[in-house]
Amino acid sequence: MPLFSLDGLTPTVHPDAFVAPTATLVGDVRVEAGASVWYNAVLRADLGTIFVRAGANVQDGSVLHGGDDPFTEVGEGATIGHLCVVHGCVIGARAVVGNGATIQDGARIGEGAMVAAGSLVAPNVEIAADRLVLGPAAKEKGPLTESAAWWVRNNPGFYQELARRHAAGVTPAD
């Protein structure tokens, strides 16, 4: 399995966890006992720690990445379905994120909740425990907000610097 250290931080995988040989873990990723990370999943912890708690699973092709929060967490026994994007958020214990769903920065998915396949959970939205949410959220809202305009202006430079950081400092982990 490709494990890469970055900025002196190396992924840790419990001996009782399964990480598929084509999954990629970068930086401060922590996979606990009984958890699984499946084929072609990418967990990139260059902006904060990623926790995959005991018994949780991250299925094929999903991408987990940090955000504004200090960590991204997949709770104990939670499921991240195939081809999901989980970005800078917290998924509660036993929650299910259906195939192709996107969970944005600062969102909190409660214990035992289900985000249906293909759904989008917007930034900072909180879903209570044991609730079902579904559907797309994208609608035109008018001109860019100040925050959105900042991202449009600054994201290219941010990723150029991040790429330099990776090019200079990512190394295969033992």
Rank of each mutant, 00 (worst) to 15 (best):
A107C: 11
N99T: 14
N57Y: 08
D7A: 15
A101E: 03
G118E: 09
V31S: 04
A113M: 07
A23K: 00
K139L: 14
G110C: 08
Y39E: 13
G66P: 03
G61K: 12
A101P: 00
P21L: 02
V97T: 06
T10D: 02
A33E: 12
D105R: 03
R53P: 07
R30M: 11
L64V: 08
R53L: 08
L43K: 03
R108K: 13
D16W: 08
V29K: 03
G98H: 08
V85D: 05
G100Q: 13
D105Y: 11
A117H: 05
A17H: 00
W38K: 02
L25V: 04
G27P: 02
P15C: 01
A95M: 11
I50P: 06
R131T: 15
D105N: 15
A117L: 07
D46C: 09
A20S: 12
L132K: 10
A45Y: 01
I127V: 15
T49K: 13
L9E: 12
D28L: 00
T72C: 06
I127G: 04
V26L: 06
K139M: 14
V97Y: 00
A128Q: 14
A116N: 10
A20H: 06
D28C: 06
T49A: 11
D28R: 02
E111Y: 09
H14C: 08
L47T: 15
H14D: 15
P136C: 12
V125K: 09
T145L: 09
G88Y: 02
A116L: 14
E32G: 02
N40M: 14
G112K: 05
R131S: 11
A33M: 06
V63E: 05
L25F: 00
L43N: 01
P70N: 10
H87L: 08
L132M: 14
V97S: 07
N57R: 14
D130V: 09
V37S: 06
P136A: 15
G48M: 05
V52Y: 02
Y39W: 12
D68T: 15
H87K: 09
V31E: 00
A95G: 06
R94D: 13
E32T: 04
A129F: 07
